[in-house]
């Protein structure tokens, strides 16, 4: 039963990583930039939800919606102010700007909400599911998290393959110049990608803090890095890859914690990434691009 409990916890944590990784992967696919501020958007999302429930007394569903809207707007604003002027800049300059945005969000949150940890009330009010005479307990948060991850993955896949905007997105990630010639508004497509990514970050933040209820201005940091690792593991730019990478990473982390020790679990996670990349240099589901001379 321990094995099953660990597996379920792993899938649950992995689903959160997957939702964050989806945001990373979409932004990377289209803007070819590592958006280091993504982890901090998660944190902002969680804080918005926390305040909406705690101070405004909104119902959990409304609070989550507010948090999604808030983060979406934040994502668009960040993109407009900080990233858009750097469309043609060297990629490292964009990276440093993203780091700057990340510092900014973190320290702004530190000023507004102070450094003391807030205890987050779960937004999920479902009873736990008890199986095998109570030997296996699946909490409501776990079920909602996994469900949300699956729904989001299906919705995003449908969106990118079926809708006009989604097709425009894929065209931009393939070749921006050609997409522009075909009459696609590249700028607004990139903004849309950021909006979707940030909205997903809000959901991930709320779910993360529902499962692990301490909220500080640095809450988003490590999940952000790990989700980034998950996105790379699955093959950056690929939607199913991000979900696969996220879930795998979550499972590996929980099992490493259970069987190897809490201290070394992060090292195990990163070692798996390195080994995977050495075997498949473009990630598990990434496209192998042949270099042309």
């Amino acid at each position: 039963m321990d094995f099953l409990t660990n597996l379920i916890n792993g899938i649950s944590l992995g689903s959160i990583y997957a939702i964050i990784a989806l945001g990373y992967t979409m932004v990377y696919g289209i803007a070819k930039m590592l958006n280091f501020a993504h982890g901090d958007v998660i944190m902002v999302g969680a804080y918005i939800c926390f305040c909406a429930m705690g101070y405004l007394g909104l119902s959990p569903i409304l609070a989550v919606l507010l948090s999604i809207v808030g983060c979406t707007v934040l994502g668009i604003v960040i993109e407009r102010l900080a990233y858009k002027p750097l469309r043609n800049a060297p990629s490292l300059d964009v990276l440093i700007t993203a780091i700057g945005v990340s510092y900014f969000l973190e320290n702004a949150a530190l000023l507004i909400w102070k450094s003391d940890p807030k205890s987050f009330t779960s937004v999920v009010d479902l009873p736990s599911l008890s199986l095998f005479d109570g030997q296996l307990v699946i909490s409501g948060v776990t079920m909602v998290t996994v469900l949300a991850c699956v729904v989001i993955m299906i919705a995003l896949t449908t969106f990118t393959t079926k809708s006009k905007q989604g097709k425009a997105m894929r065209a931009c990630s393939e070749d921006q110049g050609a997409a522009r010639l075909m009459g696609i508004n590249v700028d607004s497509t990139i903004s849309l990608t950021f909006a979707i990514g940030s909205g997903l970050a809000a959901i991930a933040g709320v779910l993360l803090c529902s499962a692990y209820p301490t909220l500080t201005p640095t809450t988003g940091l490590m999940p952000g890095i790990k989700a980034f690792v998950a996105a790379v593991l699955g093959g950056i730019g690929s939607i199913p890859g991000a979900v696969l990478g996220g879930v795998l990473l979550g499972i590996i982390e929980i099992f490493a914690k259970a069987y190897i020790g809490t201290q070394m679990s992060d090292a195990v996670v990163f070692a798996v990434l390195i080994i995977a990349l050495l075997i498949k240099p473009s990630g598990l589901l990434g496209k192998q691009i042949k270099e042309k001379v």
Partner: peptide
């Protein structure tokens, strides 16, 4: 191992090694 990779993949592997070294030093 790092020199087998290029670009952003190389970057993420160096990040991973940095974290692994920190973890080992922590123990």
């Amino acid at each position: 191992p790092v020199m087998r990779l290029h670009g952003d993949y190389l970057a993420i592997v160096t990040l991973a090694f940095g974290e692994i070294i920190k973890n080992i030093m922590n123990n």
